[in-house]
Design a protein around this nucleic acid. Sequence first.
DNA 1: CCGTCATGGTAAGAAAATCGTACCATGACG
DNA 2: CGTCATGGTACGATTTTCTTACCATGACGG
Lengths: 114, 114
Amino acid sequence: MSAEKRTPRQELAERLRGAREYLGLSQDEVAVALQLSRPSVTLMESGGRKIEATELDRLARLYRVSVEYLLSGREPEDTEPKQFAFLARAVKGLSESDVQEVARFAEFLKKSPK
Amino acid sequence: MSAEKRTPRQELAERLRGAREYLGLSQDEVAVALQLSRPSVTLMESGGRKIEATELDRLARLYRVSVEYLLSGREPEDTEPKQFAFLARAVKGLSESDVQEVARFAEFLKKSPK
DNA sequence: CCGTCATGGTAAGAAAATCGTACCATGACG
DNA sequence: CGTCATGGTACGATTTTCTTACCATGACGG
């Protein structure tokens, strides 16, 4: 069957390559942006070279993805509802019971006919 | 004045030390957990050694913080209040205007006397 | 005070990883 | 075909990390 067990480093490498190709960047452009040699970028995307924490951070910014995504493959549930950030600010500082009340209000809206 | 300009690596190192000490773990325990030598942990927490991406991931799990926090010092607005996940589910599927209404309701609660 | 243990800092040679500079393969395009 | 862009790879030089020590400090009990 399929399902080779790739190491975390290999999975990270694949996501790095995918993110770069999605943006249409060349390995050379990434190398210049991060001040690396191009072969280093090649190796990063094939799992043949370690990736330092600060490099990972800069790559995530360059590719406009989260570090969490590059490491785990999952976005941290943040990009989906964009306006949710606004709601998060709105409930910031509220007590736990108040947040629950806000949630109940949301449920109420969901159940009520439009 | 104060405000020494620390490098990103140094800031990461300080947060790693802080997170470990907050949990009351010894450098040796961390070294065993990540299968590293103890001097390596010492160097990681003093900025004297690079930290690989996968190591950063494992450290974040061990310390129960997000990778984003270790890198930037800020939580990605997601892990902080745990009940946000519940609120996110509650507003999922609501129309944009309804989410705004929920947010206004939250603001109302914030402004109203307890 | 003394001994001991836990913890963390550091040094030096050995080992490993990365870098720089090549050279090569492929594909698009004229 | 010639050329250009892109990406893969090899290998010696360089840099970094690891291993194994040894040392300093502080807590604690005798």
